[in-house]
Design a protein around this nucleic acid. Structure first.
Lengths: 196, 196
DNA sequence: CTCTTTCTGTAACGCCCACTAAAAAACGTC
DNA sequence: GACGTTTTTTAGTGGGCGTTACAGAAAGAG
């Protein structure tokens, strides 16, 4: 009992939905719009993916499919400094990938704060390891660097969505990498800056 | 012929609307919600402010009322480096001001890209001045620093909305300030980093 | 062919949206 | 008190939203 076969490509529809959510956010996308862009009727979409929230989750799963692997790959560099440099550069490139919407689905979507927190935890863990290995002065400094890296990643995604091209994003990433703490003492680098 | 006096505080209603847009964005706020939070009926709100778009624009005008002045004040520091440090710190504090929604209405709202561009132009102009005065090596470097500063500002706003406290934002701002180009040659600071 | 199963297409459902027509109420003025 | 003006109140308007009931169409199984 196989029943009538579906006439559309389920993966293609999911990719269209992902792109729509990526470009305009969860609230900015209506089910009717996805249906039109995918070329199918609403009941077909509901039968294949469930309601709008389930469709969004499946689209997010598709988006983040290779993202965690990429993160681990970047962070696996021998030194934390190199790991962060890799992460900054590959993120800048991802946020400005040709043929894809600018920015980041996860960064741009308010309701994905939990997933952002997960990524931040991963970055912080890598920097804590660097503190334990002596590459950073302390876990407090690791937390500070982590907050800074999180900030730059989120900011690059925002700039990308505002139309910044890849060169601008890579400029920002390079300048960010330049903020790495000086090797002998972090006080040297912060000389002249305010202190809490 | 004075007519019946209005029974609500127009400024208080506008402040409530500003807070709502600040917290949840233009699309996340319904007119009915503003009415309930302000304690007035819809026709009163429409008579006082016009339609939703006009209300949003007035709320934005209220939000940005003192913002440009603050920006000019920060950027008026004698050196660009100090100007950017002031801007980073005051922005971190603004994004985490107690009693106000976290983050930034302008940074968080997709449809305010033009205003963000205006702020970025102002920052870039200050850094170009620094290049002309010899504080930065070139206008190209000024553009790079500008892209970096824009990124950090947008990122801090995003982190604040994700729940980061003031200390985390100030950590990020301090680390960002540390990325200022070395005085003698910017190549010294980028030593060991990738180049395009 | 008939039955069962699964998908497609049409046509709605109720809900909330931004927005407003109309009548009643509260003022200053005559 | 009657009038003109402005606000409040009530009760809607049409439209888009997410979602679905239902009938017909396309497949394999008997």
């Amino acid at each position: 009992m196989t029943g009538r076969p579906r006439t559309f490509d389920k993966d293609a529809v999911l990719r269209a939905a992902m792109r729509a959510f990526w470009e305009r956010g969860y609230e900015g996308v209506s089910v009717a719009q996805v249906c039109e862009e995918a070329g199918i009727a609403a009941p077909s979409l509901y039968a294949a993916f469930g309601d709008k929230k389930a469709l969004f989750e499946k689209a997010c799963a598709l988006y983040t499919e290779h993202l965690d692997d990429d993160l681990e790959r970047d962070l696996s560099a021998p030194t934390a400094r190199e790991a962060i440099e890799r992460l900054l550069r590959s993120s800048a490139e991802h946020f400005s990938a040709p043929g894809q919407p600018p920015g980041c689905l996860v960064m741009g979507e308010p309701r994905l704060a939990e997933r952002r927190a997960k990524t931040r935890d991963t970055i912080r863990a890598r920097l804590h390891r660097a503190a334990a290995e002596g590459e950073l002065a302390s876990t407090a400094e690791a937390d500070g660097v982590a907050a800074f890296v999180d900030t730059v990643l989120a900011g690059m995604a925002a700039l990308a969505r505002d139309g910044a091209d890849r060169a601008r994003l890579l400029d920002a990433a390079r300048h960010a990498a330049r903020a790495w703490p000086a090797q002998r003492s972090s006080q040297v680098a912060t000389e002249g800056l305010w202190v809490e």
